[in-house]
Design a protein around this nucleic acid. Structure first.
Lengths: 200, 200
DNA sequence: CGCGTGATTGAAACCCTTCAAGTTTAGTGG
DNA sequence: CCACTAAACTTGAAGGGTTTCAATCACGCG
Protein backbone atom coordinates (compact mmCIF):
# COMPACT_ATOMS: atom_id res chain seq x y z
CA UNK A 1 0.00 0.00 0.00
CA UNK A 2 0.95 3.65 -0.36
CA UNK A 3 2.85 5.28 2.44
CA UNK A 4 0.46 8.20 2.23
CA UNK A 5 -2.58 5.98 2.54
CA UNK A 6 -1.17 4.48 5.71
CA UNK A 7 -0.60 7.91 7.23
CA UNK A 8 -4.20 8.88 6.58
CA UNK A 9 -5.66 5.66 7.97
CA UNK A 10 -7.59 5.21 11.21
CA UNK A 11 -5.21 2.37 11.93
CA UNK A 12 -2.20 4.69 11.92
CA UNK A 13 -3.95 7.40 13.88
CA UNK A 14 -5.30 4.94 16.44
CA UNK A 15 -2.01 3.30 17.30
CA UNK A 16 0.04 6.47 17.13
CA UNK A 17 -2.32 8.16 19.57
CA UNK A 18 -3.01 5.28 21.90
CA UNK A 19 0.27 3.44 21.84
CA UNK A 20 2.83 6.04 20.78
CA UNK A 21 3.92 4.27 17.61
CA UNK A 22 5.57 6.67 15.14
CA UNK A 23 6.39 6.55 11.44
CA UNK A 24 9.63 4.68 11.98
CA UNK A 25 7.83 2.10 14.12
CA UNK A 26 5.22 1.49 11.45
CA UNK A 27 8.02 1.10 8.93
CA UNK A 28 9.49 -1.68 11.08
CA UNK A 29 6.10 -3.30 11.49
CA UNK A 30 5.21 -3.35 7.80
CA UNK A 31 5.81 -7.12 7.49
CA UNK A 32 3.23 -7.77 10.18
CA UNK A 33 0.11 -6.12 8.82
CA UNK A 34 -1.86 -5.86 5.63
CA UNK A 35 -4.90 -3.87 4.49
CA UNK A 36 -7.65 -5.79 2.73
CA UNK A 37 -11.01 -4.85 1.29
CA UNK A 38 -13.78 -7.20 2.35
CA UNK A 39 -17.04 -7.08 0.40
CA UNK A 40 -20.42 -7.20 2.08
CA UNK A 41 -21.31 -10.65 3.48
CA UNK A 42 -17.86 -12.09 2.90
CA UNK A 43 -16.47 -14.33 5.62
CA UNK A 44 -13.04 -13.70 7.13
CA UNK A 45 -13.19 -16.68 9.47
CA UNK A 46 -15.36 -19.80 9.47
CA UNK A 47 -15.86 -22.40 12.18
CA UNK A 48 -13.29 -25.16 11.81
CA UNK A 49 -10.56 -22.84 10.58
CA UNK A 50 -7.77 -21.64 12.83
CA UNK A 51 -7.83 -17.88 13.29
CA UNK A 52 -4.49 -16.45 12.13
CA UNK A 53 -4.90 -12.68 12.52
CA UNK A 54 -6.14 -9.91 14.69
CA UNK A 55 -8.44 -7.70 12.70
CA UNK A 56 -8.57 -3.95 13.03
CA UNK A 57 -11.61 -2.46 11.32
CA UNK A 58 -10.41 0.49 9.27
CA UNK A 59 -13.83 1.09 7.70
CA UNK A 60 -17.13 -0.74 7.72
CA UNK A 61 -18.58 -3.23 10.16
CA UNK A 62 -17.81 -6.84 11.06
CA UNK A 63 -19.68 -9.33 13.17
CA UNK A 64 -18.39 -12.22 15.25
CA UNK A 65 -20.93 -15.02 15.62
CA UNK A 66 -21.62 -18.70 16.12
CA UNK A 67 -24.13 -21.07 14.56
CA UNK A 68 -26.14 -23.59 16.56
CA UNK A 69 -27.07 -27.04 15.29
CA UNK A 70 -30.40 -25.72 13.97
CA UNK A 71 -28.63 -23.08 11.90
CA UNK A 72 -29.45 -20.22 14.26
CA UNK A 73 -26.96 -17.37 14.27
CA UNK A 74 -25.83 -15.94 17.61
CA UNK A 75 -23.92 -12.67 17.47
CA UNK A 76 -21.22 -12.35 20.13
CA UNK A 77 -19.79 -9.04 18.98
CA UNK A 78 -20.14 -6.22 16.50
CA UNK A 79 -16.94 -4.52 15.37
CA UNK A 80 -17.30 -1.08 13.77
CA UNK A 81 -14.47 1.30 12.83
CA UNK A 82 -11.48 1.30 15.17
CA UNK A 83 -12.46 -1.94 16.83
CA UNK A 84 -10.33 -5.03 17.14
CA UNK A 85 -11.81 -8.44 16.64
CA UNK A 86 -10.47 -11.96 16.40
CA UNK A 87 -10.98 -15.37 17.89
CA UNK A 88 -8.33 -14.98 20.56
CA UNK A 89 -8.54 -18.50 21.85
CA UNK A 90 -8.39 -20.14 18.44
CA UNK A 91 -5.37 -18.00 17.63
CA UNK A 92 -3.63 -18.31 20.92
CA UNK A 93 -4.11 -22.03 21.39
CA UNK A 94 -3.89 -22.82 17.66
CA UNK A 95 -7.20 -24.66 17.69
CA UNK A 96 -10.05 -24.71 15.17
CA UNK A 97 -12.44 -21.86 15.82
CA UNK A 98 -16.07 -22.39 16.78
CA UNK A 99 -16.97 -18.99 15.40
CA UNK A 100 -17.42 -16.92 12.27
CA UNK A 101 -16.29 -13.44 11.36
CA UNK A 102 -18.16 -11.75 8.54
CA UNK A 103 -18.37 -8.29 7.00
CA UNK A 104 -21.89 -6.94 7.33
CA UNK A 105 -20.94 -3.78 5.45
CA UNK A 106 -18.34 -3.39 2.73
CA UNK A 107 -15.25 -3.03 4.90
CA UNK A 108 -11.58 -2.23 4.91
CA UNK A 109 -9.78 -4.41 7.42
CA UNK A 110 -6.21 -4.48 8.71
CA UNK A 111 -5.01 -8.05 9.15
CA UNK A 112 -2.46 -8.05 11.94
CA UNK A 113 -0.08 -10.97 12.31
CA UNK A 114 0.21 -12.18 15.93
CA UNK A 115 3.84 -11.02 15.91
CA UNK A 116 2.66 -7.47 15.29
CA UNK A 117 1.94 -7.24 19.00
CA UNK A 118 5.20 -8.84 20.02
CA UNK A 119 7.27 -6.56 17.77
CA UNK A 120 5.32 -3.41 18.54
CA UNK A 121 5.77 -4.15 22.22
CA UNK A 122 9.52 -4.27 21.71
CA UNK A 123 9.49 -0.92 19.93
CA UNK A 124 7.38 0.94 22.46
CA UNK A 125 6.66 -0.08 26.01
CA UNK A 126 3.44 1.97 25.86
CA UNK A 127 2.17 -0.42 23.24
CA UNK A 128 2.33 -3.40 25.62
CA UNK A 129 0.59 -1.40 28.29
CA UNK A 130 -2.13 -0.38 25.89
CA UNK A 131 -2.61 -3.92 24.63
CA UNK A 132 -2.85 -5.26 28.15
CA UNK A 133 -5.43 -2.58 28.95
CA UNK A 134 -7.47 -3.54 25.90
CA UNK A 135 -7.51 -7.15 26.94
CA UNK A 136 -8.57 -6.25 30.47
CA UNK A 137 -11.29 -4.04 29.11
CA UNK A 138 -12.60 -6.77 26.88
CA UNK A 139 -12.81 -9.09 29.90
CA UNK A 140 -14.80 -6.37 31.61
CA UNK A 141 -17.27 -6.11 28.73
CA UNK A 142 -17.66 -9.86 28.50
CA UNK A 143 -18.46 -10.08 32.20
CA UNK A 144 -20.90 -7.26 31.92
CA UNK A 145 -22.65 -9.01 29.07
CA UNK A 146 -22.94 -12.25 31.05
CA UNK A 147 -24.37 -10.29 33.92
CA UNK A 148 -26.96 -8.72 31.62
CA UNK A 149 -27.97 -12.09 30.23
CA UNK A 150 -28.31 -13.52 33.74
CA UNK A 151 -30.05 -10.60 35.40
CA UNK A 152 -32.03 -8.60 32.86
CA UNK A 153 -35.17 -8.98 30.76
CA UNK A 154 -35.09 -8.54 27.00
CA UNK A 155 -36.39 -4.99 27.34
CA UNK A 156 -33.70 -3.98 29.80
CA UNK A 157 -31.02 -5.54 27.64
CA UNK A 158 -32.23 -3.60 24.62
CA UNK A 159 -32.23 -0.33 26.56
CA UNK A 160 -28.69 -1.08 27.67
CA UNK A 161 -27.71 -1.81 24.09
CA UNK A 162 -29.16 1.51 22.93
CA UNK A 163 -27.18 3.33 25.59
CA UNK A 164 -23.93 1.51 24.88
CA UNK A 165 -24.00 1.40 21.08
CA UNK A 166 -26.28 4.18 19.85
CA UNK A 167 -24.40 4.38 16.56
CA UNK A 168 -25.06 0.73 15.77
CA UNK A 169 -28.81 1.19 16.07
CA UNK A 170 -28.80 3.04 12.77
CA UNK A 171 -26.49 0.69 10.93
CA UNK A 172 -27.49 -2.79 11.96
CA UNK A 173 -30.75 -4.47 10.96
CA UNK A 174 -33.02 -5.24 13.89
CA UNK A 175 -32.87 -8.97 13.45
CA UNK A 176 -29.13 -8.83 14.08
CA UNK A 177 -29.58 -6.79 17.23
CA UNK A 178 -32.13 -9.38 18.32
CA UNK A 179 -29.53 -12.08 17.75
CA UNK A 180 -27.02 -10.12 19.85
CA UNK A 181 -29.58 -9.75 22.65
CA UNK A 182 -30.47 -13.44 22.55
CA UNK A 183 -34.10 -12.99 21.47
CA UNK A 184 -36.09 -13.38 18.26
CA UNK A 185 -36.69 -10.48 15.86
CA UNK A 186 -40.39 -10.67 16.67
CA UNK A 187 -39.71 -10.25 20.37
CA UNK A 188 -37.48 -7.28 19.72
CA UNK A 189 -40.20 -5.70 17.63
CA UNK A 190 -42.62 -6.07 20.55
CA UNK A 191 -40.06 -4.80 23.02
CA UNK A 192 -39.61 -1.70 20.88
CA UNK A 193 -43.35 -1.12 20.77
CA UNK A 194 -43.41 -1.34 24.57
CA UNK A 195 -40.62 1.20 24.86
CA UNK A 196 -42.32 3.57 22.43
CA UNK A 197 -45.52 3.27 24.48
CA UNK A 198 -43.61 4.01 27.70
CA UNK A 199 -42.32 7.30 26.40
CA UNK A 200 -45.78 8.93 26.47
CA UNK B 1 3.81 -18.00 57.60
CA UNK B 2 6.14 -20.93 57.94
CA UNK B 3 8.54 -21.64 55.12
CA UNK B 4 7.55 -25.26 55.31
CA UNK B 5 3.86 -24.44 55.02
CA UNK B 6 4.52 -22.50 51.83
CA UNK B 7 6.43 -25.39 50.32
CA UNK B 8 3.53 -27.72 50.97
CA UNK B 9 0.89 -25.36 49.59
CA UNK B 10 -1.05 -25.71 46.37
CA UNK B 11 -0.02 -22.16 45.64
CA UNK B 12 3.67 -23.08 45.64
CA UNK B 13 3.16 -26.26 43.68
CA UNK B 14 0.93 -24.54 41.13
CA UNK B 15 3.29 -21.73 40.25
CA UNK B 16 6.43 -23.80 40.45
CA UNK B 17 4.94 -26.31 38.01
CA UNK B 18 3.16 -23.94 35.67
CA UNK B 19 5.42 -20.93 35.72
CA UNK B 20 8.80 -22.29 36.77
CA UNK B 21 9.10 -20.25 39.96
CA UNK B 22 11.59 -21.77 42.40
CA UNK B 23 12.30 -21.33 46.11
CA UNK B 24 14.50 -18.30 45.56
CA UNK B 25 11.81 -16.67 43.44
CA UNK B 26 9.18 -17.17 46.12
CA UNK B 27 11.60 -15.69 48.62
CA UNK B 28 11.81 -12.54 46.49
CA UNK B 29 8.05 -12.43 46.08
CA UNK B 30 7.22 -12.74 49.78
CA UNK B 31 6.23 -9.05 50.08
CA UNK B 32 3.61 -9.51 47.38
CA UNK B 33 1.42 -12.27 48.74
CA UNK B 34 -0.27 -13.30 51.94
CA UNK B 35 -2.23 -16.34 53.09
CA UNK B 36 -5.53 -15.71 54.86
CA UNK B 37 -8.22 -17.93 56.31
CA UNK B 38 -11.69 -16.89 55.25
CA UNK B 39 -14.64 -18.33 57.20
CA UNK B 40 -17.78 -19.59 55.53
CA UNK B 41 -19.99 -16.80 54.13
CA UNK B 42 -17.42 -14.07 54.69
CA UNK B 43 -17.07 -11.46 51.97
CA UNK B 44 -13.68 -10.63 50.48
CA UNK B 45 -15.02 -7.96 48.14
CA UNK B 46 -18.27 -5.99 48.14
CA UNK B 47 -19.79 -3.81 45.42
CA UNK B 48 -18.54 -0.24 45.80
CA UNK B 49 -15.10 -1.27 47.03
CA UNK B 50 -12.08 -1.24 44.76
CA UNK B 51 -10.60 -4.69 44.32
CA UNK B 52 -6.96 -4.66 45.45
CA UNK B 53 -5.82 -8.27 45.06
CA UNK B 54 -5.84 -11.28 42.90
CA UNK B 55 -7.04 -14.25 44.88
CA UNK B 56 -5.65 -17.74 44.54
CA UNK B 57 -7.81 -20.32 46.25
CA UNK B 58 -5.52 -22.55 48.29
CA UNK B 59 -8.40 -24.49 49.88
CA UNK B 60 -12.16 -24.15 49.85
CA UNK B 61 -14.49 -22.43 47.42
CA UNK B 62 -15.24 -18.82 46.52
CA UNK B 63 -17.98 -17.30 44.42
CA UNK B 64 -17.97 -14.14 42.34
CA UNK B 65 -21.42 -12.61 41.98
CA UNK B 66 -23.55 -9.52 41.49
CA UNK B 67 -26.82 -8.38 43.06
CA UNK B 68 -29.67 -6.89 41.05
CA UNK B 69 -31.92 -4.13 42.34
CA UNK B 70 -34.43 -6.70 43.65
CA UNK B 71 -31.71 -8.38 45.70
CA UNK B 72 -31.33 -11.31 43.36
CA UNK B 73 -27.90 -12.92 43.34
CA UNK B 74 -26.28 -13.76 40.00
CA UNK B 75 -23.22 -15.97 40.12
CA UNK B 76 -20.63 -15.16 37.47
CA UNK B 77 -17.97 -17.59 38.60
CA UNK B 78 -17.12 -20.32 41.07
CA UNK B 79 -13.51 -20.58 42.20
CA UNK B 80 -12.46 -23.87 43.80
CA UNK B 81 -8.91 -24.92 44.73
CA UNK B 82 -6.17 -23.71 42.39
CA UNK B 83 -8.41 -21.12 40.74
CA UNK B 84 -7.69 -17.45 40.44
CA UNK B 85 -10.42 -14.92 40.93
CA UNK B 86 -10.63 -11.14 41.19
CA UNK B 87 -12.49 -8.24 39.70
CA UNK B 88 -9.92 -7.52 37.02
CA UNK B 89 -11.53 -4.39 35.74
CA UNK B 90 -12.04 -2.84 39.16
CA UNK B 91 -8.43 -3.58 39.96
CA UNK B 92 -6.96 -2.60 36.67
CA UNK B 93 -8.90 0.62 36.21
CA UNK B 94 -9.01 1.41 39.92
CA UNK B 95 -12.78 1.78 39.91
CA UNK B 96 -15.40 0.66 42.44
CA UNK B 97 -16.45 -2.91 41.80
CA UNK B 98 -19.98 -3.90 40.83
CA UNK B 99 -19.42 -7.38 42.21
CA UNK B 100 -18.99 -9.45 45.32
CA UNK B 101 -16.55 -12.16 46.24
CA UNK B 102 -17.56 -14.48 49.07
CA UNK B 103 -16.35 -17.73 50.59
CA UNK B 104 -19.02 -20.40 50.26
CA UNK B 105 -16.86 -22.90 52.11
CA UNK B 106 -14.32 -22.21 54.84
CA UNK B 107 -11.37 -21.29 52.68
CA UNK B 108 -7.70 -20.53 52.66
CA UNK B 109 -6.93 -17.81 50.15
CA UNK B 110 -3.69 -16.30 48.86
CA UNK B 111 -4.04 -12.55 48.42
CA UNK B 112 -1.69 -11.51 45.62
CA UNK B 113 -0.72 -7.90 45.24
CA UNK B 114 -0.94 -6.67 41.63
CA UNK B 115 2.84 -6.25 41.65
CA UNK B 116 3.19 -9.97 42.27
CA UNK B 117 2.64 -10.48 38.55
CA UNK B 118 4.99 -7.69 37.54
CA UNK B 119 7.78 -8.96 39.78
CA UNK B 120 7.28 -12.62 39.02
CA UNK B 121 7.39 -11.75 35.33
CA UNK B 122 10.79 -10.16 35.84
CA UNK B 123 12.09 -13.25 37.64
CA UNK B 124 10.91 -15.79 35.08
CA UNK B 125 9.85 -15.17 31.54
CA UNK B 126 7.72 -18.33 31.70
CA UNK B 127 5.60 -16.63 34.32
CA UNK B 128 4.54 -13.85 31.93
CA UNK B 129 3.75 -16.37 29.26
CA UNK B 130 1.68 -18.40 31.67
CA UNK B 131 -0.19 -15.35 32.92
CA UNK B 132 -0.96 -14.23 29.40
CA UNK B 133 -2.23 -17.71 28.61
CA UNK B 134 -4.48 -17.66 31.65
CA UNK B 135 -5.99 -14.37 30.61
CA UNK B 136 -6.61 -15.61 27.08
CA UNK B 137 -8.19 -18.74 28.45
CA UNK B 138 -10.49 -16.76 30.67
CA UNK B 139 -11.62 -14.72 27.66
CA UNK B 140 -12.36 -18.02 25.96
CA UNK B 141 -14.50 -19.26 28.84
CA UNK B 142 -16.38 -15.97 29.08
CA UNK B 143 -17.19 -16.10 25.37
CA UNK B 144 -18.27 -19.67 25.67
CA UNK B 145 -20.58 -18.78 28.53
CA UNK B 146 -22.16 -15.93 26.55
CA UNK B 147 -22.69 -18.30 23.69
CA UNK B 148 -24.41 -20.80 25.99
CA UNK B 149 -26.69 -18.13 27.38
CA UNK B 150 -27.60 -16.96 23.88
CA UNK B 151 -28.00 -20.32 22.22
CA UNK B 152 -29.00 -22.95 24.76
CA UNK B 153 -32.00 -23.90 26.86
CA UNK B 154 -31.75 -24.28 30.62
CA UNK B 155 -31.50 -28.05 30.27
CA UNK B 156 -28.65 -27.87 27.80
CA UNK B 157 -26.81 -25.37 29.96
CA UNK B 158 -27.12 -27.65 32.97
CA UNK B 159 -25.81 -30.62 31.02
CA UNK B 160 -22.88 -28.49 29.89
CA UNK B 161 -22.27 -27.42 33.48
CA UNK B 162 -22.23 -31.04 34.64
CA UNK B 163 -19.70 -31.92 31.97
CA UNK B 164 -17.46 -28.92 32.70
CA UNK B 165 -17.57 -28.86 36.49
CA UNK B 166 -18.51 -32.34 37.71
CA UNK B 167 -16.69 -31.76 40.99
CA UNK B 168 -18.78 -28.70 41.79
CA UNK B 169 -22.02 -30.65 41.49
CA UNK B 170 -21.25 -32.34 44.78
CA UNK B 171 -20.09 -29.25 46.64
CA UNK B 172 -22.42 -26.45 45.59
CA UNK B 173 -26.07 -26.25 46.60
CA UNK B 174 -28.46 -26.47 43.67
CA UNK B 175 -29.86 -23.03 44.15
CA UNK B 176 -26.40 -21.60 43.51
CA UNK B 177 -25.97 -23.65 40.37
CA UNK B 178 -29.36 -22.33 39.28
CA UNK B 179 -28.10 -18.80 39.84
CA UNK B 180 -25.02 -19.56 37.75
CA UNK B 181 -27.19 -20.93 34.95
CA UNK B 182 -29.53 -17.95 35.03
CA UNK B 183 -32.65 -19.84 36.13
CA UNK B 184 -34.61 -20.32 39.36
CA UNK B 185 -33.96 -23.20 41.76
CA UNK B 186 -37.41 -24.55 40.96
CA UNK B 187 -36.63 -24.66 37.26
CA UNK B 188 -33.37 -26.45 37.91
CA UNK B 189 -35.21 -29.01 39.98
CA UNK B 190 -37.58 -29.66 37.10
CA UNK B 191 -34.72 -29.79 34.61
CA UNK B 192 -33.05 -32.42 36.75
CA UNK B 193 -36.22 -34.49 36.86
CA UNK B 194 -36.37 -34.30 33.06
CA UNK B 195 -32.79 -35.47 32.75
CA UNK B 196 -33.37 -38.33 35.19
CA UNK B 197 -36.42 -39.38 33.15
CA UNK B 198 -34.37 -39.28 29.94
CA UNK B 199 -31.85 -41.77 31.24
CA UNK B 200 -34.35 -44.67 31.20
C1' DC C 1 -44.16 -2.78 -11.39
C1' DG C 2 -42.86 -7.02 -8.95
C1' DC C 3 -39.60 -9.06 -6.09
C1' DG C 4 -37.00 -9.79 -1.83
C1' DT C 5 -35.74 -8.44 2.58
C1' DG C 6 -36.82 -6.63 6.93
C1' DA C 7 -40.30 -5.22 10.28
C1' DT C 8 -44.71 -5.83 12.40
C1' DT C 9 -48.76 -8.19 14.26
C1' DG C 10 -51.71 -12.00 15.96
C1' DA C 11 -52.65 -16.48 18.08
C1' DA C 12 -51.16 -20.63 20.04
C1' DA C 13 -47.59 -23.16 22.24
C1' DC C 14 -43.78 -23.44 25.21
C1' DC C 15 -40.44 -22.43 28.64
C1' DC C 16 -39.58 -20.48 32.70
C1' DT C 17 -41.05 -17.87 36.82
C1' DT C 18 -43.73 -17.01 40.81
C1' DC C 19 -45.98 -18.22 44.84
C1' DA C 20 -47.43 -21.48 47.93
C1' DA C 21 -47.50 -25.76 49.60
C1' DG C 22 -44.98 -30.07 50.83
C1' DT C 23 -40.91 -33.18 51.45
C1' DT C 24 -36.30 -34.28 52.30
C1' DT C 25 -31.84 -33.45 54.33
C1' DA C 26 -28.33 -31.98 57.45
C1' DG C 27 -27.04 -30.14 61.57
C1' DT C 28 -27.87 -29.14 66.70
C1' DG C 29 -28.96 -29.71 71.34
C1' DG C 30 -31.19 -32.46 74.61
C1' DC D 1 -29.62 -41.62 69.62
C1' DC D 2 -33.62 -39.12 68.97
C1' DA D 3 -36.14 -34.81 68.39
C1' DC D 4 -36.21 -30.48 66.58
C1' DT D 5 -35.18 -26.95 63.42
C1' DA D 6 -33.65 -24.61 59.44
C1' DA D 7 -32.24 -24.94 54.97
C1' DA D 8 -32.46 -27.14 50.65
C1' DC D 9 -35.05 -29.45 47.41
C1' DT D 10 -39.34 -30.88 45.18
C1' DT D 11 -43.99 -30.40 43.36
C1' DG D 12 -48.23 -28.10 41.72
C1' DA D 13 -50.97 -24.45 39.64
C1' DA D 14 -51.27 -20.00 37.71
C1' DG D 15 -49.16 -16.38 35.20
C1' DG D 16 -45.71 -13.88 32.35
C1' DG D 17 -42.47 -13.50 28.90
C1' DT D 18 -40.70 -15.44 24.64
C1' DT D 19 -40.94 -18.32 20.75
C1' DT D 20 -43.04 -20.16 16.79
C1' DC D 21 -45.55 -19.95 12.67
C1' DA D 22 -48.19 -17.57 9.53
C1' DA D 23 -49.90 -13.52 7.56
C1' DT D 24 -49.40 -8.74 6.54
C1' DC D 25 -47.12 -4.43 5.82
C1' DA D 26 -43.22 -1.26 4.34
C1' DC D 27 -39.47 -0.28 1.64
C1' DG D 28 -35.65 -0.27 -1.84
C1' DC D 29 -34.15 -1.88 -6.16
C1' DG D 30 -33.81 -4.05 -10.65
Amino acid sequence: MEQEELLRSNFYRYYSEKAMLNDADFEQLLPYFEFKDIPHNQYILRAGEVCKSFLFVEEGLLQFHSLDEKGGEHILQFAPEEWLVSDRSSMYFDEPSLHYIKAIEPSKVVFMHPNFFLEAGKLKYEFSVFTERSLQRSVYFLQRRINSLLAMTAKERYLEFMALYPNLLLRVPQWMIASYLGITPESLSRVRREIAKDSF
